[in-house]
Design a protein around this nucleic acid. Sequence first.
DNA 1: CGGAATCCACACGGATACTG
DNA 2: CAGTATCCGTGTGGATTCCG
Lengths: 130, 130
Amino acid sequence: MVTIETKQHPAWDVYKATCPTRQVLDCIADKWAVLVIGLLNGGTRRFGEMRKSIEGVSQKMLTQTLRSLERDGIVSRRVYASVPPKVEYTLTPLGQSLAGIVESLRVWSESNIEVVLASQQTYDARPEAE
Amino acid sequence: MVTIETKQHPAWDVYKATCPTRQVLDCIADKWAVLVIGLLNGGTRRFGEMRKSIEGVSQKMLTQTLRSLERDGIVSRRVYASVPPKVEYTLTPLGQSLAGIVESLRVWSESNIEVVLASQQTYDARPEAE
DNA sequence: CGGAATCCACACGGATACTG
DNA sequence: CAGTATCCGTGTGGATTCCG
């Protein structure tokens, strides 16, 4: 049984943005997490590899994202006691099931990005837009 | 042809976190957008309804999210010239196709939230965690 | 190599007040 | 009702430095 600490709002009716969804979104609703899951869906990766593969991610954000995903049981972290240090990240079975959704998002994105970009341009070109 | 303005990083190799995905994530990688899409997947909604249905969303964030999704061609906005004003939001066909993914995320969340929460507790209960 | 820790700017987002 | 506009605190995240 999942209990929410915050007081329930009375008007929680029309379409219930269900709590589980909210909680999961609080974990993965940032682009780095999605990209990390997508990357690890291709197999185990080392920290440095991921840093290079995900353009623009800072060391701090990658660490933070990986820690968060590890905490959620989505990613597992394996440290090798070698010199130099070697740390590998892998999707857990739970993470792999989530990766399926990330993968479908990737497919959707590639199929529809041009439509989205076109829509944005049309929107920005409106007379009232400045 | 989609062109990225920012300079391409040379190390863009191992697993390419493809540009379309990145761009789509820049649009929808926040929880309000996902919740809005999920809500509208249940049908057309008015602004006030959505505000009540999505607990904790401020009027500012809801407006901002809806404007963004409208710009992306995911949500359409219909204004009725009535008193009092009435504004309806609906998913476009593009939005509906994306809603399928959101829906599968909702299902995944409800199926796995307990595992995630349990993992979090185990993680936080580690000796080294403070 | 894979971090942790610190500093700090700025953008995000809440609260409030006002409007068509 | 459905916004817009403004103020403003704070959390996010980049840059840098140091460590095991």
